[in-house]
Design a protein around this nucleic acid. Sequence first.
DNA 1: AATTATGTTGACCGGATGGTCAGGTTGTGG
DNA 2: CCACAACCTGACCATCCGGTCAACATAATT
Lengths: 215, 215
Amino acid sequence: MTQNAQVSRIQKGRRTEIRRENERVILDAAEKVFAEAGYGGATMQLIADMAGLPKANLHYYFPTKEALYRQVVRNIFEIWLHAADTFDDAPGPVEGIGGYIEAKMAISRRHPFGSKVWASEVMHGAPVIQDYLETTLRDWTAGRMAVIQAWVDEGKMAPVDPRHLLYMLWAMTQHYADFGHQIETLNGGEPLSDAQWRDATETAKTVILRGIGVI
Amino acid sequence: MTQNAQVSRIQKGRRTEIRRENERVILDAAEKVFAEAGYGGATMQLIADMAGLPKANLHYYFPTKEALYRQVVRNIFEIWLHAADTFDDAPGPVEGIGGYIEAKMAISRRHPFGSKVWASEVMHGAPVIQDYLETTLRDWTAGRMAVIQAWVDEGKMAPVDPRHLLYMLWAMTQHYADFGHQIETLNGGEPLSDAQWRDATETAKTVILRGIGVI
DNA sequence: AATTATGTTGACCGGATGGTCAGGTTGTGG
DNA sequence: CCACAACCTGACCATCCGGTCAACATAATT
C-alpha cells in the first residue's frame, strides 16, 4: 500500500514532482498575499512565510516578484474565461445567462483572492495583462455579444445592449468576491452562509432574467 | 476688477488660503496616485511630483502617508453617501432606484479615482475605514433596505431581497469606474463617449427597473 | 520695525525590500 | 558508487522609501 501510494505519487519522477508542488505552494501563497496587500504592498518575505519556504527559494522558482505576479494573474484569467462555457451550448438566454451567473457566482465564492488580484490588476491599468485584454478578452467579448444579439434578433429576449448587459453580469458577480469584506461586515462580520449565497445568486438571476424579459 | 478678484479670493486671510489650496492640491494628487498605484505602490515622492511640491512640504500638511490616505478615503466616503439623497424623497422605486442609478453612474464618471481608492481599501480589508463600515455604512444600508422593503410591502415592486438588490446597484455602477480601463480597452482604447455613458445608464436602469417589475 | 507664527525645502537617516550568491544537500543516471 | 544536475538557503548588498530636521522665507501682529 505504501509502495502503491508512492508509485502513484511519483509517477513522473521525484524531481518534477518537487518542482510542481513547490510552484503550486508558492503560487497559492502569492495569490493570497497579492490579493490582501496589493502588488506594491506585497513582499517576497510575506509570501515566503505564507508558503513556509525561505525567501531565496522563491527566487529559485520565480526569478522576480513581477514574474511571480504575472503567473498568478495568468492563472486567474484562465479560470475566468472557462466560466463562459455555459454560454456556448445554451439554447436560449434563460440557460445561457442564468448559467453564466451561477458559474461566476461560484467562482467568486471559490476564488475570492484571484478575483481581487484581477480587479487590482485592471484598476491599476493592467500593466501586466494589457495584451490579453486586447486580444483574448476582446475576442471573447465579441463572441458572447454576438450570441446575445442573436437571441435578441430571434425574439428570445428583450432588446438590450449586449455589451452593457455583459458588464452588468461581470460587475454583479465579481462584486461578491472583490467587496467580500464589505459584504461580510454588513452581514454582522460573518461570511455569507450557503443559504445566503443561494439567495444572492437567485436574486441576481431573477432580477436579470426578468430584466431581459424572459420570465 | 483685479482688486475685486483678489478680495474675493482672499476672503479669510492669505494664510488660511494658502493652507486650503495646498491641502486641496495634495489631496487631488494623492487620490490619483493612490488609485493608480495602490497604497503600497504609491510613494510620497510620486504624490509630491504630481502636486508640484517638494516631498517635505507634504509632511508639513499631512504628518504621515497613512494620514494623507485616510483623508482621501474619507472624502470619497462623503460623496458616496450623498448619492443616496435620491432615495429619500422618492415616491416609489422608479424615481428612487432609477435616480440612484443615475447618480452613482455620474459619480463613477466624475470621480473614477476616488471610486478606485475606495474599492482598493475595501478589497484590502478596509484597514482604515473599518469603523465607518460598521457604523455609518451599516446604518445607511439598513435605512435604504427598509425603504425598499416598504415598497415591496406596498406592492410597488416585485418581491426582491433588498440587500442583494442594493449590492447589485453598487456593483454595476462602480464597475464603470473601477474597471474603466478594461471597458476602455474593449471600446477600442477610447474612453466612453457621452452617448455611450447614456447607453450604459439607460441599459442599467431598464434592466433593473424591469427586473424589479416596475416597467 | 521688530517680533512672532506660519510656510518652505534640501539634505539626511534608519529600516525595509527585491534580488544575489556561494556553499551546501538531495536526487538521478551511468 | 561516482559524477553531475537540480534543489536549498543563510548571509549579504544596493536601492528605495517614509519620515525628520535645521535653516531659511514669507506673512501676520504688535
